[in-house]
């Protein structure tokens, strides 16, 4: 879903609809924050139930894969918020659309990586 909101932010900026672009930017950052919050909850729950980073091979693979992904999402949220702040200061208009386009590509890349991680780590029968 956040891939959709980020492209809508880009297209809104392209047509110089700054207000909508800000709304979609914030929505994307919020969806990312919900994802990271879910990860924090999940990591805490697993740790309390005895699955740590060094417990077994699965624990190491799980925390490394999903942890690195969480870090990338957090970096993406920082990028998005910096764009939002620039927009609020009037420094993000359709003339600077390329900046948001590049951040959008980063966000989509993080998204496609999650598509693979989600299937392999969470859904494949073990």
């Amino acid at each position: 879903m956040s891939s959709l909101t980020v492209v809508l932010a880009i297209t809104a900026l392209r047509r110089n609809d700054i207000r909508r672009s800000r709304i979609w930017l914030l929505s994307t950052a919020l969806l990312g924050a919900i994802f990271v919050g879910g990860q924090v909850y999940e990591f805490t729950a697993f740790y309390r139930e005895g699955l740590g980073y060094t417990t077994n091979l699965f624990g190491t693979a799980f925390f490394t894969l999903t942890g690195f992904h969480g870090v990338h999402v957090t970096v993406g949220i920082i990028f998005l918020m910096s764009m939002y702040i620039q927009s609020m200061r009037g420094k993000l208009t359709s003339a600077q659309e390329e900046r948001l386009e590049i951040i959008g590509l980063y966000w989509h890349f993080v998204d496609v990586v999650w598509i693979v991680i989600f299937t392999i780590v969470y859904l494949f029968p073990q």
Partner: peptide, 12 residues
């Protein structure tokens, strides 16, 4: 997984 991967890469 592959279809979703290509959809995101292709469209978004």
């Amino acid at each position: 997984m592959v279809v979703k991967f290509f959809l995101v890469a292709g469209v978004f």
